[in-house]
């Protein structure tokens, strides 16, 4: 089952052609990784899936992106509903300057849930799913900025689970974490994939190889190669992919 598909997707920042003709199918309940050197367009592609590029002045998106078969770039589409379904985790953990609890139920609250009891149930579920509940249940009213980097990143994932997101977009979620924290987040992602569709952008090829099911390799705005992770890493079809994997550039 394909969750997200893109056809002839092109993105421009003013005159800069950031993403060139990307055609891609992302499978449901799997982890899809985008690799490539910085500036190659992988983050731009990720931000097409929840239309975060709309926030950037001068960004233009041409072509088609479909979520569950429905075009997400129609005129007057419901952006709020889209972003609820397609959540995003950022490079630097970005909990809001609020308490742990308020961070966790931020999404449900902005979407209109008011009853305290309901919010408490939601926060317990979301925090349990990211394995934070046991650690934090006694200090939910503490500021989220007091947590460690890893806990903050887990909390940011919990925030998405609390709005019943279906797709989790991750923009180098481990780049500010140490190796042990990285390993824990990776384990969490593998555990989450049975319920969610995960798309992860990473600098770290080993990370893509360890956790992803499919991988796309990007170079200067083009998707050079896309396939199952096993195949792409063992027998890349393209010379450029092979060169990158062997560390000849990038």
């Amino acid at each position: 089952m394909m969750k997200i598909t893109s056809r002839n997707l092109n993105v421009f920042y003013e005159d800069f052609h950031a993403l060139i003709n990307v055609n891609l199918d992302i499978r449901e309940h799997a982890i899809t990784a985008f690799i490539g050197s910085s500036g190659c367009g992988k983050t731009t592609l990720l931000r097409c899936f929840n239309r975060m590029n709309d926030l950037i002045d001068g960004a233009k998106v041409h072509g088609e992106v479909r979520l569950d078969g429905k075009n997400i770039y129609p005129d007057g589409g419901d952006l709020l509903a889209l972003r609820r379904k397609v959540g995003m985790v950022f490079q630097r953990p970005n909990p809001f300057p609020l308490s742990i609890f308020d961070n966790c139920i931020y999404g449900p609250r902005v979407h209109g849930t008011k009853e305290r009891k309901k919010l408490e149930v939601i926060s317990e579920h979301a925090l349990s799913a990211v394995l934070l509940w046991e650690e934090l249940k006694d200090r939910l009213d503490r500021p989220a900025l007091e947590l460690t980097g890893e806990q903050q990143q887990r909390l940011c994932i919990a925030r998405l689970l609390a709005v019943n997101a279906e797709v989790l977009l991750m923009d180098e979620p481990c780049s500010t974490l140490d190796p042990i924290a990285t390993q824990k987040i990776e384990e969490l992602l593998v555990k989450l994939k049975k319920d969610y569709t995960i798309v992860i952008v990473t600098h770290n090829m080993q990370q893509a190889a360890r956790i992803s099911d499919s991988t796309g390799f990007f170079l200067m705005g083009e998707m050079v190669e896309f396939g199952t992770t096993k195949k792409l890493f063992r027998s890349p079809k393209h010379k450029r992919t092979q060169d990158y994997l062997e560390g000849r550039f990038g």
């Binding site: 889209l82 609820r84 809001f96 999404g107 902005v110 979407h111």
Partner: peptide, 8 residues
């Protein structure tokens, strides 16, 4: 960005 990305 985090808040907008949550659909706020």
């Amino acid at each position: 960005e985090g808040s907008i990305a949550l659909g706020a």
